[in-house]
Design a protein around this nucleic acid. Structure first.
Length: 247
DNA sequence: CATCAAACAGTAGA
DNA sequence: ATCTACTGTTTGAT
């Protein structure tokens, strides 16, 4: 388990400067009952908090299950290391119509916003002061569904903009690993950072986290219930992207 | 041209 | 007997 630094947020009264104990529990994880936690390591800057209470989170989860329409057909397949695979989860993007999103050589167009997504987005603006124009939704039907290590380094992202990851449904482990500590030829030994992302929670991934840290949602066979994760982003429109390349 | 991968499969160790 | 973590992939895109 890693020793990452945890600080109470500024708005929480009664901060006594003591380090809250949270990393020695079952998976070394901030538990959702704590209001707001900063998680820092070299080049990593996260903020974890509960965004919705139980009842509201339940209602949103049900609405997401009813109203979100996931990609089908070709958009459910991925070409990696010379082979085609079905992605081990369901996925879709919603957002402002002029935006696009590319990863692993595939470009996605967003579906138009729907009320439940606007509801979450409005809450994010209220609680974080940041605006978002795009969201990637991943649905993990159970602990077998997962996502491998990657960075959110798409060129369409507004430079240095934070990514807001909102979770509903089953609580899942979430792992960060530093780019220099991966693989056999790792140049540094930086321990992975493990979190749990609970029902109704928000994880803010702030600059420069995605420059140095990969993250993944590993398989957890004991998890039997579905989880829906929404990563809200701030993207640039096409003309803006081109102009930045020539500037 | 060098880098490297949003995937899995195989293996070792707990 | 599971489960998890880690390594290698090897080819096309960037």
């Amino acid at each position: 388990m890693d020793r990452f630094v945890v600080k109470r947020s500024a708005e929480e009264p009664g901060g006594d400067g003591k380090k809250p104990r949270l990393e020695e529990e079952a998976g070394g994880l901030p538990h959702p009952s704590q209001p707001s936690q900063e998680i820092r390591a070299q080049g990593l800057s996260l903020e974890y908090r509960l965004l919705f209470g139980r009842a509201e989170a339940d209602a949103i989860f049900q609405q997401l299950e009813k109203e979100v329409e996931y990609f089908e057909g070709e958009q459910t397949k991925l070409h990696v290391f010379g082979k085609w695979h079905n992605i081990p989860r369901k996925q879709v993007t919603y957002g402002d119509p002029e935006l696009t999103y590319t990863y692993s050589g595939v470009t996605f167009s967003p579906k138009p916003w729907i009320p439940v997504l606007n509801h979450i987005r409005d809450r994010l603006v209220l609680e974080t002061g940041h605006t978002f124009n795009f969201v990637v939704i991943n649905r993990y039907k159970d602990g077998e569904d997962h996502i491998g290590e990657h960075r959110d380094d798409e060129k369409e992202l507004v430079p240095r903009s934070p990514i807001a990851s909102v979770s509903f449904g089953a609580c899942r482990d979430f792992v960060f690993r530093h780019c220099d500590s991966r693989g056999k030829n790792a140049t540094r030994h930086i321990k992975p950072i493990r979190l749990q992302l609970a029902h109704g929670s928000l994880l803010m991934m702030k600059y420069p986290t995605n420059v140095y840290w990969y993250h993944s949602l590993p398989i957890r066979r004991r998890v039997l219930a579905p989880r829906i994760n929404l990563t809200f982003r701030k993207m640039m429109a096409v003309d803006k992207k081109e102009s930045i390349l020539t500037t």
